[in-house]
Nucleic acid binder design. Structure first.
Lengths: 250, 250
DNA sequence: CTAAATTTGTTCAAAAATAATCAAAATAAT
DNA sequence: ATTATTTTGATTATTTTTGAACAAATTTAG
């Protein structure tokens, strides 16, 4: 019994059964477990099966739907509150830029039924607005797997083609001393571009991010026209921010 | 029973039942409660379920990625056969164009572990290849909801920025008399562009589409270099097609 | 609001599976 | 026939998974 024959049998077993474990296959193939493992490694490399701990399974059973929704559930209530307010500033016919943060993502349910155009670089947003009444436009370019969004030169250039009425931006940190900050250059670049090519820009930022400085400060607070936050925000801090030229909505 | 199998069962239970508790699942899966908790934590992290005290609940996603996967399951075996062959022509380091058809979509499991660049206008493909070893690039532009893909002037222009080693194209109809045909202008435009900017282009087309003319014939058969089809294809028809300058692989 | 009950997170040890290494067997090449 | 190459199997070390025990946190009942 050579590899080709074993391969046939393994694939058939996995396909008909949905899965198979190493022990079982070793008996079936009348060979040692180590050989089965080696075979499974090869078949998995070729993408014919999905290797699991202890065996293998059919590829079609190994699919994972998008995993962004739950991350956005951290401080979900505040984010929903913020997004509801944000959505109330959007009116029919608007062209809207949405960036790829987990806060901005939560605006989707509130705008699904609006007749607007959305330009975004966020894959989860596209998924959430598919088959809605929103007209979608995705910024092309290289996809950043972690952020589930396009980024880089091509993506930025995409946004510059369009003119939006409103841009909604997430931000990782905001402080009186250093303004807006991001955890990555990519995010900072995109946010800056969106703000630049939109008539009005709204920062969506829950109060836990106030007075936090992240890795890269990239713009003064007044890069955005409005800051939408939750009710837990400190009043005197808000006044300080407003003194820098941003309008606070809550 | 390993994690992947338990995951299947847990998700199915939660989806059909709306919710499930830890005790119940431990019995169902014939394992300990601590293991169930760990599984639920993982699934919840991935955003597949919503974790509650004592169990888990269904997470109502507005978008159901399973939908497209199901549609693409029509003649699924032929499509898988075709895609497996298609994938075997891709090698490490290739830049690959993938169009938005349901046949081409099925190539995803076979290329997930390859170190290649994929440029596509298909949202389902992007979703299927997220968090894989494939480097992704999405063609920006307006999104066609029905086709779940970008289209139009901007999308086409996006592809023209890049040069691919291989393009994999779906097609709605192929006939000796009229060549390749599509059900919509959008598809035809994209296919043409992909073929033009790739060194080699592969048509993925199951034999049920042979000698079918759709709404818009848009190119001669030899626009593509190769036609990959299933074993059910008529031999004399294949010879006729080959005489028009395309190489048949199966 | 407090106490009891339940659920969860953490730490640790056992068990199972895998990876790595090396030797033996089978196969191919000269 | 002999040498090189590939494939397989055995052994050991490492990693992953699992379950138990117990402390911490959360919910429920009173």
């Amino acid at each position: 019994m050579n590899f080709q024959e074993r391969k046939q049998i393994i694939i058939e077993k996995v396909e008909t059964n949905g899965s198979a474990d190493v022990k079982e296959l070793a008996v079936l193939l009348n060979t040692s477990e180590i050989t089965v493992r080696r075979d499974l490694a090869i078949l998995s490399d070729k993408g014919l099966i999905f290797r699991t701990h202890g065996g293998a399974m059919k590829l079609s059973l190994s699919y994972d739907p998008v995993d962004f929704v739950n991350k956005s559930a951290v401080r979900g209530e505040q984010k929903d509150y913020i997004c509801q307010i944000a959505a109330s500033y959007i009116k029919e016919g608007d062209v809207v830029f949405l960036d790829c943060g987990s806060t901005v993502f939560r605006i989707c349910p509130f705008i699904r039924n609006m007749k607007i155009k959305v330009v975004t670089n966020s894959i989860p947003i596209v998924n959430a607005l598919l088959n809605s009444s929103v007209s979608l436009n995705f910024a092309g370019g290289e996809i950043d797997m972690e952020r589930q969004a396009s980024h880089g030169y091509v993506a930025i250039e995409h946004f510059t083609r369009y003119r939006a009425d409103k841009a909604f931006l997430g931000v990782d940190g905001i402080s009186f001393a250093n303004g807006l900050s991001a955890s990555s250059e990519k995010e900072a670049e995109i946010s800056t571009a969106l703000a630049k090519y939109a008539k009005e820009s709204f920062l969506l930022c829950d109060s836990s991010k106030f007075e936090k400085d992240k890795y890269l400060p990239f713009a003064p607070i007044n890069m955005a026209n409005y800051l939408i936050t939750d009710l837990g925000a400190n009043e005197s801090l808000i006044n300080q921010y407003e003194s820098l030229g941003i309008r606070i909505l809550k």
